[in-house]
Amino acid sequence: MSSLALLQLVSPALPVGGFSYSEGLEVLIQSETIRDEQQLQAWLEAELSRGAIRLEAAALPSLLGALAAWSAGETAACRRVLDLDGWLLASRESAELRAQQRQMGGSLLNLLAEMGHPLPEQVALSWPAAWAWAAQALQVAESEMVEGYLYGWVANQLSAAVRLLPLGPSRAQLLQHSLLPLIKGQAEQLQRRDPRQLWTSGVGAGMAQLTHAELYSRLFRS
């Protein structure tokens, strides 16, 4: 079941609203910082290697363990989940991105509840913690959970890029395929790392996210 459940979680049809966000990519393309497929690939590789997405991916195993303990009746584990979830949110510079994380997390939790997998208590979780709960509830393996999280982030970025650049769906799929080794390698490394001991050099991404709400005309949600 776990492999099929992972396919459902990374599907663009998952009703969490990820398609409506560009996470600053729209700013970078409007400013011509990213103008073509090669520059887009370089940007995605840099974010996978050094960006804030790494902190979230590295936190997933700890979130998964705490959520498993919580669902088994260890009420103190709820505090561990909320503490790490709050730390991840605080690591994001942009209020818009924090709002995105809360919205997508809430939508995923609502969907899981409708599927018969509600949280032990009704609390708000952002996207990474909600993703970990989905993995716990649907019995997705830890390694696949981390890979799927990074894969889904890349897929959403490419979905945005197709609407912003002269980049067709076929080229986007080829680019996604070329990034698979990097996604797998990063997932293997990050699931063994403490997120609080990692660094990020995603200053450009943070500035782009902060600037997005100020765009005169924009396609994506802030």
Rank of each mutant, 00 (worst) to 15 (best):
S71C: 05
A59S: 09
Q30C: 12
A76C: 07
E45D: 00
E47F: 02
T75I: 06
L55A: 08
E74I: 09
P12K: 07
S20Q: 14
G51V: 00
Q41I: 03
R50Q: 13
A52G: 06
G65C: 08
G17A: 11
A59F: 03
A69I: 01
W70Y: 05
L67N: 02
E74S: 08
R54P: 01
W43R: 05
A69M: 07
D36K: 09
C78I: 09
A66Y: 10
E32F: 10
L28V: 05
P12Q: 09
G51L: 01
V16Y: 07
L60Y: 04
A77G: 08
T33W: 15
Q41Y: 03
G17N: 10
W70L: 05
A76V: 11
S31H: 14
E37H: 15
G73I: 09
W70E: 03
A42Y: 04
A46H: 12
E23G: 05
R50N: 12
A42D: 12
F19L: 10
G17S: 11
R54G: 02
L28C: 05
L25W: 00
R54L: 03
Y21V: 14
R79W: 08
A57K: 01
P12E: 06
L67Q: 14
A42S: 14
R54Y: 05
E37K: 15
G51W: 00
L67E: 10
A66I: 07
E56T: 00
G18I: 06
L28T: 02
V16L: 11
E32I: 03
A13V: 10
P15A: 13
G73R: 02
Q30M: 13
R80T: 12
A77V: 06
S20P: 04
L60C: 04
A57T: 03
L44W: 06
L28W: 03
S62C: 09
L44C: 09
A66K: 08
L67F: 04
S20T: 15
E56A: 13
L63A: 02
L63T: 00
P12N: 08
L14N: 04
S71P: 00
E45P: 00
A76D: 13
L60Q: 05
E47S: 06
G17I: 11
P15F: 10
A42R: 13
S22K: 08
R54M: 08
S20N: 13
V27R: 00
T75V: 13
L60I: 03
G17D: 10
R54N: 04
S49M: 05
L55E: 04
G65P: 02
L44F: 09
Q41K: 10
S22R: 05
R80V: 05
P61M: 04
L60F: 04
G17C: 09
Q38V: 12
W43A: 10
I34H: 06
L48K: 02
L55K: 07
G17F: 11
A52F: 04
D36S: 11
L48F: 04
V27E: 01
E23N: 13
E37A: 15
E23H: 13
P15M: 12
F19E: 14
W43G: 01
G24D: 01
E45M: 07
S62A: 15
